[in-house]
Design a protein around this nucleic acid. Structure first.
Lengths: 309, 309
DNA sequence: TTGATTATACTCAACTAGAGCATAATAGGG
DNA sequence: CCCTATTATGCTCTAGTTGAGTATAATCAA
């Protein structure tokens, strides 16, 4: 155990920031709360008055958006000097959180604050097939990046990594690799954030950039959520009190960025007793009316339950 | 975005500590590195000179143990005032990590530094059946705790939570709930750490206590590792370069605290191509000699691989 | 009344996971 | 050398899960 008193001077040159990836899914649109014209995630300093990190986050997010936060989960803490834009005489520790909220808040959040998260990651939305940007831009760019490696061994390692991430060479798309894909594009110098420090690539991959690490944090949040919905019933934090099974499915698909087999999705939800009928039917957009369901909150007490794989 | 400059004063009253849950498994024993006569986890301040949190941790752990850290993973960051033992005029942010190392280091670590982690959680080892402490001490104590609740509804909620955590009422043991179990015992005032602030219970549950939050952090690390080995090949970080399948199985069982079906374990490992034969056989303790295997490091590049469920 | 659209019930085959049986190869004691 | 204990290793069987498809039911709009 180091003596703390000797190090007060050094330790005091440290600050802490809380950064939030705040997600909602109003009618099947995956949106995230942003500030500064969608160039940053909402963040605020951790202050002495806060009871804990989590309550500190709750305080200012609820104050800022006017809506209560349902689910909160810590994402990652980092303090890399190279990554942060500040000078190196002091360090800021950034603690990021994933938060889910039920509705898209309107008051206290200027229009345009909530953004479809695929604006930042156009290559992540495979609900309507693989986005053209992958085969048109990303694949050739990563091929060039791989070929630019010195040794043959390194070349093939690079390409294998790219192929795993993006599902090239028959490998198939894995929606959970959102973070790995962003990091790969960053290392290959294909996103704007990387081009700021490294030499810029000839052609950047489309997708809205953000300040500092924020896009990377968003990628972390998306990846976490995409894995989490498979084994924990967290989607319901994003749903209205009553919903149809198709609405639920659309929400899951929006987050995962892939479509699922309708009948199998229903089977899964029902056999896990995640929902119960409200007894009412929906006034539908078209087609046969659907039963309305509500989340069975009791499942949260029956802990080791599964989600919506 | 808050103006940072206005808050310098407040922000500077913050320090950061790195805390390590460092795990090894020499011949099937799950051990963790401790200091101060096994009352604390190794920790050190995060300093300005450190390149990043992770490298800061690596620096002083390797310096302190003389062994390189294989796998490192962030666990959790917290700054709750109630939990930490320090005065409230300043805050320390604790960032905890899980680290895996191959061998039990001997130099630079005094004897007794590595402790079997079941000394801290005697109720977590189900390799030889459910430990008697559960039915003898924990179950009746939690029954009393549940009954002590005011409303009938709260009583049944408490008991349901206890039953889920410890597998009462036919529910079966779930080894991944290590953290939830510790937190339950803490809330029920049944561990020493809780008795320091709350009123002490009549009889505490056996198990070595630690300073501050350290036992809780250890529980977090164990729980994380128990879930991780099921879908990522991290056990191999704890194994020697060559090993028999039984040795591998013993390591997994040591971490998970439960036994597995031998033949099915072999089938799983082999069909996933996690290992390859070295061509050599083991000079065994008894019985038919076993083939020696080594980890196929290439699987780390074939990313979305499974582990040792 | 027909077609489009969505809801909902079933079926089927492939695969996975849990459990057990059988046989092989070694050591040690008589 | 044979018997027994012990561990290694191969194989089977069954139940459950998963992916994909077929069939039928309600509704609306033209």
């Amino acid at each position: 155990m180091a003596k703390h008193s000797e190090r007060q001077q050094e330790r005091h040159a440290i600050g802490a920031d809380l950064i939030a990836v705040l997600v909602a899914a109003p009618n099947g649109n995956p949106v995230v709360l942003t500030i500064k014209d969608a160039t940053a995630l909402p963040s605020g300093p951790f202050e002495l008055g806060h009871r804990s990190l989590q309550s500190g986050l709750r305080d200012w997010v609820e104050q800022q958006t006017g809506h209560p936060l349902g689910y909160i989960e810590q994402l990652y803490t980092f303090a890399d000097r190279d990554r942060s834009g500040e000078d190196s005489s002091r360090r800021v520790i950034s603690i990021s959180y994933l938060g889910l909220t039920r509705e898209e808040p309107s008051r206290a959040t200027p229009p345009g604050s909530w953004r479809n998260w695929y604006e930042f990651f156009p290559w992540e939305d495979h609900r309507y097939g693989a986005p053209p940007v992958i085969v048109d831009v990303i694949e050739p760019a990563l091929r060039r990046w791989a070929d630019a490696a010195g040794h043959e061994e390194k070349r093939s390692k690079r390409w294998q990594r790219a192929a795993v991430c993006f599902g090239f060479d028959e490998r198939g798309w894995n929606e959970e690799l959102t973070l790995q894909r962003y990091e790969l594009l960053y290392e290959a110098g294909l996103v704007e954030e990387a081009a700021r420090t490294k030499e810029p690539a000839v052609q950047l991959v489309p997708g809205r950039a953000m300040d500092g690490d924020h896009r990377r944090i968003l990628a972390t949040g998306i990846a976490r959520l995409r894995t989490k919905i498979k084994y924990r019933p967290v989607v319901f934090e994003l749903m209205p009190p009553a919903f149809t099974l198709l609405q639920l499915q659309r929400a899951v698909e929006a987050l995962a960025g892939v479509t699922v087999h309708k009948q199998n999705f229903r089977r899964l939800i029902e056999q896990q007793d995640l929902v119960e009928e409200t007894g009412q039917m929906s006034s539908e957009t078209g087609g046969r009316p659907a039963k309305l369901f509500r989340f069975r909150h009791a499942v949260l007490d029956e802990l080791p339950v599964a989600g919506t794989k």
